[in-house]
Write a protein that binds this DNA or RNA. Sequence first.
DNA 1: TGGTAATATGCATTCAGTATGCATAATTCG
DNA 2: CGAATTATGCATACTGAATGCATATTACCA
Lengths: 171, 171
Amino acid sequence: MHLNQQTDFAFRILIYLADHTVADETGDMALARPKIREIADFYRVSYHHLMKVANALTSRGYVQSWRGKNGGLALARSPERITLGAVARDIEGHWEVVECFGTDSDCPLTNDCRLAPILNEALLHFWAILDRHTLADIARSPGDESPITFHSDLPYPLGPEPTREQRKPSL
Amino acid sequence: MHLNQQTDFAFRILIYLADHTVADETGDMALARPKIREIADFYRVSYHHLMKVANALTSRGYVQSWRGKNGGLALARSPERITLGAVARDIEGHWEVVECFGTDSDCPLTNDCRLAPILNEALLHFWAILDRHTLADIARSPGDESPITFHSDLPYPLGPEPTREQRKPSL
DNA sequence: TGGTAATATGCATTCAGTATGCATAATTCG
DNA sequence: CGAATTATGCATACTGAATGCATATTACCA
């Protein structure tokens, strides 16, 4: 009963992009394409792992990417049009609570199971909440005055990958 | 985003007990203590694995057990007093969606994360549904006339443990 | 009191999914 | 052409779940 780390990464990438695509610290829009390296450093998570999630977000149409020099990522849609539930379902593989809804179950209760509908109902309520919110709800609002942490403000040097101990994924 | 097989087993054990503690096919109440062996055969799942779940249910106070000859299992409370949500949380180890609610997260967003409250809300709605139902809702009601499958009605001989291929857990 | 039936418990193994790392390709810019 | 950056595939490690086995414990009964 939990979302996996990839989904957590996906949300955090989207939040980062929403918060950093307006302008960077120089005011230069062309440079305001956060790089995977930069995002990974900010969250102190594995660069390679985060890249895979970024790829998934790209192929699913949530994120736009540019390769090569001055490459990077940006949101492919406005935050209002990115639903949290859709992202979670796209990144998570299976999202059903019970699999006995499928066709190949031989559980003797299948024909008269009163549990499955209840679990299903609970699940629908769960997803209904996530489907009711978009990235705009969790990203910084335009008028938000709280400080944004830019790349150059990071309180640690940009060195090699953090070790497993240094990293602490939060999901 | 799913419940594990142990939780599935737990629900099915409880359903079986609720359906079979009234009387067995001989009308003898003393024999109406389903055995783990019997339940495992009925659902065609691993005997040993199901025993562990039965033990968990026993130690959590949902089920009463007797060892030795004529031993077996029975509900320790009336079905109305067994809440589905409580069972699931007791059998599942961790049941939070996000773990960054904990104290040892160093996610830079922790202090101003707008995602966590939403996930939390979704989760609360999920559990609210399960907490609203009891075993009485999913077990056979007393007036239910539909046939009950007794041990002796099983359409297959009681042989050795089914192989992995024969078994198809439904959750 | 010994045998049998049943649950209880601990340990070892297998398995699957997730996470991680590495190598290399592909692309873009200058 | 070279550097920077994303894209992709493969191999490995890690973790938790699932499974199986051995043995202990308990209770009934002859």
